[in-house]
Design a protein around this nucleic acid. Structure first.
Lengths: 186, 186
DNA sequence: TACCTCCATGTCAGGAACTGACATCACGAT
DNA sequence: ATCGTGATGTCAGTTCCTGACATGGAGGTA
């Protein structure tokens, strides 16, 4: 066995979620998190840019779920069709993560500072989707708006998915919201 | 003349914007802002919840521009028509504020911490619009989605408005984006 | 084996953001 | 004239976050 226990980052993330659930975000210090993970505070900040970031995974991986699906869409698919495929892919990615997502969402909903971070992550996802659409040949303006629609659909669907008691299919929900949006706009 | 110079809050807000433009957000301390405004650091935190907040006005007043317009819309207007009226009202509210909005937007664009705050403000605006629509009798789901569309339209239009060199009509832009969204979704 | 470099972590000092508790003192009402 | 109010000042303290430097196992090389 090595000099240190493996996966300090993972231990920190888990300790943080536990403590946030137990005591709340504000009553938990970074020192508390580090102590439970068995490292020092300084090590926490080597793995995460700040205290909020510990609740958010690798954005490249997460955004990639959406952007890869957009990139993989058939060349003749419309931007909105590509968006729907991205929603399906995201729905699949979240399969089996419902219990975790619920706990995490509850923590975030309880603390404005964490909602802020979540909203920027959403913005970055929107921009990533727009970029992926542009890469497929969609115009800048249409790409930006389609990405926003995708983001709205996913956000709404995710909220409902996490709120609902029994687990439903997130992909179905999201594509459903996209259809609601279509109906509204026409 | 009173014991203190009047409008400490306004002086703080102005000093902050000046300093953020001059040195950047991170290189400006709250003590710097307070000093330029002629008060102490503690007074800054009595007027603003945190360092970021100094760039954002009263959310009740700002959101009210949108929600009042929604509330004042004719009873037979569709949710999306009410949204368009809100966009017009917001456009009018920003008349004459283009130079200020540009400077402010540049500062925010340069600092992730400020983008975070801006995104939550946007979220709260969206929720306020949804609530105003519900008050008009729109269903929860349709209200949420219409509010999101309104928010998207305004956000896109505002970005273009602030980016463009010569000043155009923000209301026109926003309603135009709403039409683009319609076209995309159909 | 002996040595050596790498790199994740530890240690420590310090700046800046924010908060609670208490003091001050012009202004306006009584 | 007195008194309460409320915006501000003062000060101590906690927490977040960063830079600089030290440490010592792992893994490679002679």
């Amino acid at each position: 066995m090595g000099r240190w226990k493996p996966d300090a980052r993972g231990r920190l993330a888990q300790a943080a979620l536990e403590l946030f659930v137990e005591r709340g975000y504000e009553s938990t210090t970074v020192a508390d998190i580090a102590a439970r993970a068995g490292v020092t505070e300084r090590t926490f900040f080597r793995h995460f840019a700040d205290k909020r970031e510990v609740l958010f995974g690798d954005p490249v991986e997460y955004n990639g779920v959406f952007t890869d699906a957009v990139a993989a869409a058939p060349a003749d698919a419309s931007p909105l069709d590509a968006a729907a495929l991205a929603l399906r892919a995201a729905g699949k990615w979240f399969e089996g993560r419902h219990p975790y997502a619920r706990r995490r969402a509850a923590v975030i909903a309880a603390h404005p500072a964490l909602q802020e971070r979540e909203q920027v992550k959403r913005l970055h996802l929107t921009e990533a989707i727009a970029a992926a659409l542009v890469a497929r040949g969609t115009g800048e303006a249409a790409a930006a708006l389609t990405a926003e629609l995708t983001s709205v659909a996913f956000h709404q669907a995710f909220t409902r998915w996490v709120t609902a008691d029994e687990e439903s299919d997130l992909g179905d929900l999201a594509v459903g919201v996209l259809d609601e949006l279509r109906a509204l706009a026409c």
